[in-house]
Design a protein around this nucleic acid. Structure first.
Lengths: 232, 232
DNA sequence: CGACACGTTGAGTGCCTTCAAAGCTCGTGG
DNA sequence: CCACGAGCTTTGAAGGCACTCAACGTGTCG
């Protein structure tokens, strides 16, 4: 795994979607955090735990899970390289964070972050901006669950991944999470997600070389599916 | 909201509704804002407009709407007396705010709020806390849309209103918004909302004296519907 | 009182889910 | 190296929940 140091010359490995802000915080904070690793499916922190740390993902993917008492599960979002998690809570975490793949992250003590926030206005601004960004993402997600069909939701999801990965037509897209994770994120069943992906494949909108990669054959057609579910 | 989580877990005076916090900010800010009024269905601000003001609702109800290009509509939340709206955006509003009923509110210039935020740590803390609260509410709402049945969603919604209004068994609950608004908030159709309410009425869980009031006959039974949708 | 908006109820359909089984992939051990 | 098995994914068939379309009721305001 090449550690993606944000310091690369120009083209910041921007993380637009679902996304918290950009890189600047990281470069500043890298020095005051400690690197840690999590294995696949390992829990990073749990809903209800005292919120003592925030994390910045260096590599791998994390899912933010809300588990219902009766076993149903909802995924509020995914965090990929460059994203931060654990900022959104005060006393205790309100979600569980689990490693989707092996994950490398930097851990920051909340107390430290809070002090930094007090002292430095630009840090404050950045963290608040991340919070706002999260809220916008949640609202978009709500619209998706509230009034999109299965096909539209899956298309939206792929477009989101494509934007995040800066991938366009013909390029392979990394899909680190499993089908069940996608289903729980989109409020669908795993079978519906599979069937929808198969449909898109049969319509030559996408190709599926293997379970963790998807090639987008036509971004335009994907977008037209989201804009208005028209074609059969 | 699903409530459920907010309610049963700990005793924190959690803000049940889509809710921003309560009064503290208002009392401080009342002096620097100007009172304004909006008629039923009037737009307070629109998605895409430059975000120049925030508002605190004094009386009435506001809905936060996201309108899709094809006419579909989603309601991200409601704001009632004591709530604040318009804090969550930086440059432009990302949602449209409309008066559900006649509304009286206090308008605050964003520029002023931002300056205050710079200068006074306690204001900053309060505003950030509201942002976090909004995010938690959005996450609860996501769970609702993502994995609850129609009956569970409606029950959750009623419980949310009941908590907000500090209403319990046997008391009449104000329901300022229309059925269509409820439907768009819950990701259902108006017919499904009606039918579900009628079911609850037939099961004597609630009574419906008139379209804008609902009496909760048994909070316990409502809660048991949310906890696990068992009975048909 | 009449008109209009909103709400409620009914019948039928369709999308997604549920239940079931087969295919794939990858790690493990013989 | 290949067989085996577990976990995940895909496909198929049947059913149900919520949606659509349509008509009827109810409240509210001129």
């Amino acid at each position: 795994m090449h550690i993606q140091t944000a310091v690369r010359s120009r083209s910041a490995p921007t993380i637009p979607l679902a996304g918290l802000g950009r890189e600047p915080v990281g470069t500043t904070l890298q020095s005051i955090g400690s690197v840690c690793r999590f294995g696949r499916n390992q829990t990073i922190f749990s809903d209800g735990d005292e919120a003592t740390s925030s994390y910045k993902v260096i590599s791998g993917a994390v899912r933010l899970v809300k588990l219902m008492p009766d076993g149903r599960r909802h995924i509020a979002g995914f965090r990929l390289a460059g994203d931060i998690l654990g900022l959104e809570w005060t006393r205790e975490y309100a979600l569980t964070a689990e490693a989707v793949t092996d994950v490398t992250a930097v851990r920051y003590a909340r107390a430290l972050l809070e002090r930094l926030e007090e002292e430095r206005a630009e840090i404050r601004t950045q963290l608040t901006e991340r919070l706002r960004s999260d809220l916008r993402a949640a609202h978009d997600h709500l619209v998706s669950l509230g009034c999109q069909s299965a096909k539209e939701r899956v298309a939206s999801f792929l477009l989101m991944l494509a934007h995040r990965g800066e991938v366009t037509d013909g390029e392979a897209l990394d899909v680190p999470m499993g089908r069940q994770d996608i289903a729980d994120y989109l409020g669908l069943t795993i079978e519906t997600v599979c069937r929808t992906l198969s449909d898109l494949k049969d319509s030559s909108v996408i190709a599926i070389p293997n379970r963790h990669q998807i090639v987008i054959e036509s971004i335009d057609r994907l977008e037209s599916i989201v804009d208005a579910d028209s074609d059969p």
